[in-house]
Simulated assay, not measured.
Amino acid sequence: MDRKGKVLIAAPVHDVLTTGLAAAGYELVWSEQISQEEAFRLLPECVGVITSTRLQLNRELIDAAPMLEFIGRMGSGMEVIDVAYADQKGIRCIGSPEGNCNAVAEHAMGMLLSLTKRITKSFSEVRSGLWLRDENRGMELEGKTVGIIGFGHTGSAFAKLLSAFNMRILAYDKYHPVAATTNITPCNSLEPVFREADIISFHVPQQEDTHHLFNREFATAMQKPFILLNTSRGTVVDSELLPGLLQSGKMTALGLDVWEEEPLSKMSAKLRIVFNELITLPNVVITPHIAGYSVEALFKMSDILLKRII
């Protein structure tokens, strides 16, 4: 078999990908916990790299890899890759956003149900010996209006799950047209979301125009008390606003799977104060960026990448 060169595996992947690449003639170089510095040492000998969010495939790193033919991205969001520069160099940039969209949608649904039914809060109280029924009266989702910001793979997958609850969905996507259906209303601006939404869920990439998309102006424009969900990127939400919004009642609950500075060990002192305050509040659920990391999603993303590479 002709050898096709080395591929750096710089992310957790399913065996379907590594077995398939090896069978196709690639030599695998493993470094799932790779640092940016180590990548400069390993990539010059590689024709391909499989990454997630750990590496920044910027101009400097791309220039340091003269043999590079393809970059495979586990999951969605190509912000870790200078795609335009890679294109100029003839390097294929291959994503797998549909591989984990259902996992993210189910996670967002789980957080929403936990918050509206007070599941996490009441279980914590039961573990402490409390049996509080009136204090944990839940809210039904039926008839509520959800504003989905970003209607690509994950946003549309979340809408599909919400439709089973007979909810009205306002779908806003700045870059892609949204088709109207029985329960989905496309929005050309955020004004209908500000006016009518009971729940906001973000499903947008990390880029310049989404940095702090949820800011003070956004929160002020909301006409109803609302629940906020973010399973996209931490920088989409201005975290410093959150404790005040929750304590004032403007925001009734908060579900986050992402944080502005990850992992927590790299958090600034300023955001640590905000984070420590949030995790004491009963109407908050925070998970460690695991929404798109299900067992099934790992397989689906790996399988999609393999087929697109081969």
Rank of each mutant, 00 (worst) to 15 (best):
L281Y: 08
I227R: 04
N136V: 03
T154I: 09
A269Q: 11
L161K: 06
V47Q: 12
E60D: 15
L306F: 14
C101M: 09
T210P: 13
M74H: 15
L246N: 04
H211E: 13
L21F: 05
F194M: 07
R3H: 09
L112F: 05
W131V: 00
G129F: 08
S35H: 03
L115H: 07
K121F: 08
N188G: 11
L141A: 03
F214V: 14
I9S: 02
G77Y: 14
Q207H: 08
P186L: 01
T280Y: 01
F151V: 01
S124V: 05
Y175R: 01
E240D: 10
D134T: 02
A269C: 01
I304A: 04
G143M: 09
N230C: 07
V7N: 05
K160L: 02
T280V: 03
S294H: 08
L112Y: 07
G72L: 15
K89I: 06
E217I: 02
P243T: 02
D82S: 13
N183F: 12
L8A: 02
L305K: 08
L55W: 14
I279C: 02
N136K: 01
R168L: 08
N136A: 01
F214Y: 14
R3S: 11
M222F: 10
V204E: 12
L8N: 05
S189Q: 08
V284W: 05
N166W: 06
K224G: 10
R272K: 10
S265N: 06
T280R: 11
E37P: 05
M222V: 11
T116S: 09
C187F: 08
R233D: 13
T182S: 13
L57C: 15
G77T: 15
A171F: 08
A10C: 06
I273P: 01
L42G: 06
M111P: 12
A86P: 14
S122V: 12
V193S: 04
E125L: 04
G255V: 07
P44D: 13
L68A: 14
G143L: 07
M1T: 08
R272I: 00
I227S: 05
D82H: 12
F123N: 13
I169C: 08
A11F: 03
D82T: 12
N136M: 02
R73E: 15
I81D: 15
D257C: 04
I34M: 01
G95Y: 13
L241Q: 11
N188F: 00
R41H: 12
V295F: 09
L256N: 08
T185M: 09
Y26S: 02
L130R: 06
G150T: 08
A103W: 09
D82I: 12
Y172N: 05
F194R: 01
H14S: 13
F226C: 04
S52Q: 15
H212T: 11
C93Q: 11
R168M: 09
S189M: 05
A24Y: 10
C46P: 13
T53A: 11
E27V: 00
E240V: 05
E38P: 01
H107G: 05
Q206C: 06
E98Y: 06
K6N: 14
Y175S: 07
Q247T: 03
L213S: 07
N188S: 11
A64Y: 15
A22G: 03
V47L: 12
E140M: 04
V285T: 13
A221D: 13
A253H: 10
P225S: 12
